[in-house]
């Protein structure tokens, strides 16, 4: 994982964009993580006959090349489906700038290396304005230094330490946590008998 994300910003300001909208259910009938790019934001990108909706930002030049979204409040709310993050990544999105994200979506993003910098509503609104300018140029999300730069503007952003470290290191949490097997065994040995759940098969 690079220590920064660079690319074109696209303005996507509607609030409460939920994971049903990010990845409609008809694309969820799958047992793999792949093949989700077409499904991402499908009902906003395409009409009923699968033609591109010309008014949607990601269908308009230059934002067809966008890799950063500047979004409305509470992006990623709703269902826990990680497919929403996989799909955004497969569509080429590497960063989503917002004022706050739903918890499960935030954690899913971290697991997959999708950067979610959190800024104030004022800064977000400024970035929306900049993103609407086709000549705005490249935006840089500097994860190591927690700073967004575009043109002559620089804005600090919030990101908790653990998420920042996970993005920078690109680690595998499962394998890392297994290194703590002794601690887990120690915890289990302290549990009373009826705290060991045994589901009847």
């Amino acid at each position: 994982m690079p220590d920064q994300v660079k690319g074109l910003m696209a303005a996507f300001p509607q609030p409460n964009v939920d994971t049903d909208v990010i990845m409609p259910k008809r694309f969820l009938i799958t047992i793999t993580r792949e093949g989700l790019a077409d499904g991402t934001l499908a009902d906003l990108r395409f009409d009923e006959d699968n033609n591109k909706r010309p008014e949607f930002v990601l269908n308009r030049s230059p934002w067809t090349e966008a890799s950063i979204l500047v979004v409305g409040d509470n992006f990623g709310c709703g269902s826990s489906r990680e497919h929403a993050v996989w799909g955004l990544m497969q569509l080429g999105i590497r960063g989503v700038i917002g004022t706050g994200f739903a918890g499960i979506f935030y954690d899913n993003a971290r697991k997959n290396g999708l950067a979610l910098p959190i800024v104030s509503p004022k800064v977000r609104d400024e970035l929306i304005q900049i993103a609407r300018d086709p000549d705005a140029g490249e935006c840089k999300i500097d994860i190591a230094n927690r700073q967004i730069s575009v043109g002559s503007q620089h804005h600090p952003f919030d990101m908790d330490d653990a998420t920042r470290a996970a993005l920078l290191e690109g680690r595998d949490d499962t394998l890392d946590s297994l290194k703590l097997a002794d601690s887990i065994l120690g915890y289990e040995s302290g549990l009373r008998e009826k705290m060991h759940v045994n589901v009847i098969q």
Partner: peptide, 22 residues
């Protein structure tokens, strides 16, 4: 609480989750 698929893998393999206090 709800978790994503990567965390499902984590629980299966370790019976634990990485967690940030709310």
């Amino acid at each position: 609480f709800g978790i994503g698929t990567s965390e499902v893998e984590h629980v299966l393999a370790t019976q634990t989750l990485r967690y940030k206090r709310l």
